[in-house]
Design a protein around this nucleic acid. Sequence first.
RNA 1: CAGGUUGGUCGGGCAGUCGCGGUCCUGCGUUGACGGGAUCGAGGAAAGUCCGCACUCCUAUAGAGCACGGCGUCGGAUAGCACCCGGGGCGGGGAAGUCCGUCAUUCGUUGACGGGAAGAUCGCCGAAAGGCGUGAACCUGCCGGAAAAGGGCCACAGAAACAAACAGCCCCGCGUUUCGCGGGGUGAUGGUGAAAAGGUGGUGUAAGAGACCACCGGCGCGCACAGUAAUGUGUGUGGCCAGGUAACCCCCGCCGGGAGCAAGGCCAAGCAGGGACGAUUUCGUCUGUGGACGAUGGGAGGCUGCUCGCCUCCAUACGCGCCCAUCCCUCUUGUGGGAUGAGUCAGUCCCGGGUAGGCUGCAUCGAGCGGCGCGGUGACGCACCGCCCAGAGAGAUGACUGCCCAAUGGCGCAUUGCGUCAUGGACAGAAUGCGGCUUAUAGACCAGCCUGAAGC
RNA 2: CGGGGCGUGGCGCAGCCCGGCUAGCGCACUUGCAUGGGGUGCAAGGGGUCGGAGGUUCAAAUCCUCUCGCCCCGA
Length: 120
Amino acid sequence: MRVQRRFRLSRSEDFKRVRRTGKSYAHPLVVLVTQASETKDRLKIGITAGKTTGTGVHRNRAKRLLREAIRNLIPSIASGWDLILIARPALVTATLADTRSALTNLLKRAKLLSADETPG
RNA sequence: CAGGUUGGUCGGGCAGUCGCGGUCCUGCGUUGACGGGAUCGAGGAAAGUCCGCACUCCUAUAGAGCACGGCGUCGGAUAGCACCCGGGGCGGGGAAGUCCGUCAUUCGUUGACGGGAAGAUCGCCGAAAGGCGUGAACCUGCCGGAAAAGGGCCACAGAAACAAACAGCCCCGCGUUUCGCGGGGUGAUGGUGAAAAGGUGGUGUAAGAGACCACCGGCGCGCACAGUAAUGUGUGUGGCCAGGUAACCCCCGCCGGGAGCAAGGCCAAGCAGGGACGAUUUCGUCUGUGGACGAUGGGAGGCUGCUCGCCUCCAUACGCGCCCAUCCCUCUUGUGGGAUGAGUCAGUCCCGGGUAGGCUGCAUCGAGCGGCGCGGUGACGCACCGCCCAGAGAGAUGACUGCCCAAUGGCGCAUUGCGUCAUGGACAGAAUGCGGCUUAUAGACCAGCCUGAAGC
RNA sequence: CGGGGCGUGGCGCAGCCCGGCUAGCGCACUUGCAUGGGGUGCAAGGGGUCGGAGGUUCAAAUCCUCUCGCCCCGA
């Protein structure tokens, strides 16, 4: 439910910290990096798309897809974690359903899905 | 109407549900990972960064010289701009190749085969195919020093690449009579080359040559006319016949100080730095002084709910002494002496520069946008009315559904077309702002010009 | 945002400033010789849209303009 800006990772240090010390889970469409948060009962999500994703339109497209896909999954995710979603080039041609199933797969592997039933 | 060509406008629309960003307003027995409302929310290129500005700092209203760089036809437009608008000159395209399919390919294209449409226009020739000439609208490149201020270069070939020489031709002299040598004249005859000294005909001469003559060509100059001008047309000439290259150096004229919103301004954690304050108060003893020691008093902290009380720590520099660590010597082996090193104030306050970070610049007052009118061929200008119109930070525009619009394909009716189903939307995302240029771009609409045909 | 550099056979580089010469060098590749065989060595050979397009010029890898891609640096 919460994709608003204040629930996102924004500071460059946060990105560096999670990328350095967190655990990563890869998928052809997207990469998930997780790390236990400093503040409990908080879930923060950062979304990033590097230059390898493509031009400006493609980077924005990838990030919008990830935001829309993670939106319905957020109530099922365990709190107290910082997450980073890294877009990969194949994501540009993927559909919303593809992205959502990829995220569900990654979150199950990271054991962050609290409820089994996936909404949407 | 057909063909060609150019310019302009738009670049999906409407409705619903969920969601995102900015601004403003707002609710609360729950001030939070809370909720509600209004409003606004990507482009013609936001892109490339090729130019020009605003703005900021250096640093001041960047003024002069040099260097370096850029620009260079004329007139206009503009805040400004080499790239905008209109004109001029010299070229190129238009004007023989093009499209589609298949195959091969170095996957840029190119080639082969098959098929289609067409070859502006006009004139002539031709039975035809076609050939010869002409050459529209429109598009596009370039533009100072007519390269005679000067320097450089011009491969290969060629005698020679700009200035004479070589071969040749002619004359004279000598040797001699196939010819050779020496001196002189001449200027293009010499298989080249991208380029070879204006062309044709004649006069002339020992041989020749714009040396001279006629006509033609080109350049310059004068005059007349047209034009604001570049320039054009005409005419005259007791001026000339000069290779190319200035996107080689150079010369002339004009312009340019440099860096850039990550500019710049403000606030500023922590660490480090600098500075100030900070209890020897009182009594006694010792000392040459500074001061040291004892008692008392004081400061900071702890124990405690508070007071008393108790405990721990503190009193700068030099020097002495003391404590600790390491090493050496000694032996009294739980000793003594020496050397070196480190420490030798708890705390309070202030200061400048400034990192992380934050605020600002920065988002509504502008070279602003829209409409309408007038002036101008046009770039553009003027007047009136209306409007306030995204913003930023790891960076907001998305997802789904229905209908419509354009497109593609299938099926049915039918043959202009209609119905239905499916697919399905180019290039591309603001980041200080603005003007121009360049590049990418599915498709739709409108208009101008040229040529042709038909009709009135 | 600003500044700088690079693109040439399969790979790594010269040549570019100041235009002309068969676009050269090393490694790699192919063939032959040599060896019992391989490596090494020797000899010969093939392979190039000079990133792309346009322009200047008689002539462009080289000069000019536009464009594509890659790399590095500063704050």
